[in-house]
Amino acid sequence: MKLMNTHLHAISVIAEKTIKMDIVIEKKLLETIRPGQFVYIQIGSSSEHMLRRPISIADVDIEKELLTLVYKELGEGTRKLSQLKKGDPLNLLIPCGNGYRIDQLQLSHALLIGGGIGVPPLYYLAKKLVEKGIKVTTIIGFQSKEDVFFEEEFKGLGDCFVTTNDGSYGQQGYVTDSIEKEQPEFDNYFACGPNPMLKAIELKLTDKKGFLSLEERMGCGIGACYACVVPTKDEKGSKKICQDGPVFSAGEVKI
């Protein structure tokens, strides 16, 4: 993990309050990044925002030396990030967390399940899986039509099904409804999204090996402050989401 100063290369709105940022990062560092890892980004340079914001890595372009982040404007900190312009300075801790360790897995078909702002890290994961010759099916769920993003990108990598809670786009319902309907074939699943979604998936796909990426409010971002913990399944201990996670095997922690 490195503490570094860099700058913004491009910024755009890709869905409702959903921002895509390209950040300049040197090739050598980009090559070390695993899908599912995140950056811990400083808001401004004053003392107003004392806590950085964890944002998952959506894509890596080693040739262009660019890192892509996608986040949702949910409060003052992320709103401030969105006001940045090309060339503005950024301070990052990068890369944070463990990520999806796909090199250690034997599989031929992966099911990727994303909910809302849990979708971005699955994109770089899908690219890396396809690179390894693994077939990818993606199910992504959003609140409503205007929240949908990355559908085309995922379709370029395999089958992609979209759900919306209000039915304004794709199938109406939750990602679990789509799993029910499509009955996709897969060896392992990889999920990222809100805790109720992860819990429902874990309960539904009990016969398959899966990996869940969790989110929590963080303090230090490096494992020192114990703010972002999650109890282990036996509730006898806990794991740190920023350091031991954000990716856990299904059944490892109590969501």
């Binding site: 107003e48 806590l51 929590e216 409010r217 303090g219 972002c228 913990v229 999650v230 806990s238």
Partner: peptide, 14 residues
């Protein structure tokens, strides 16, 4: 084991 999460919240300059 400490408290349940959320355990931290940012406030203005703190």
């Amino acid at each position: 084991l400490g408290n349940s999460t959320p355990r931290v919240a940012e406030t203005k300059s703190g």
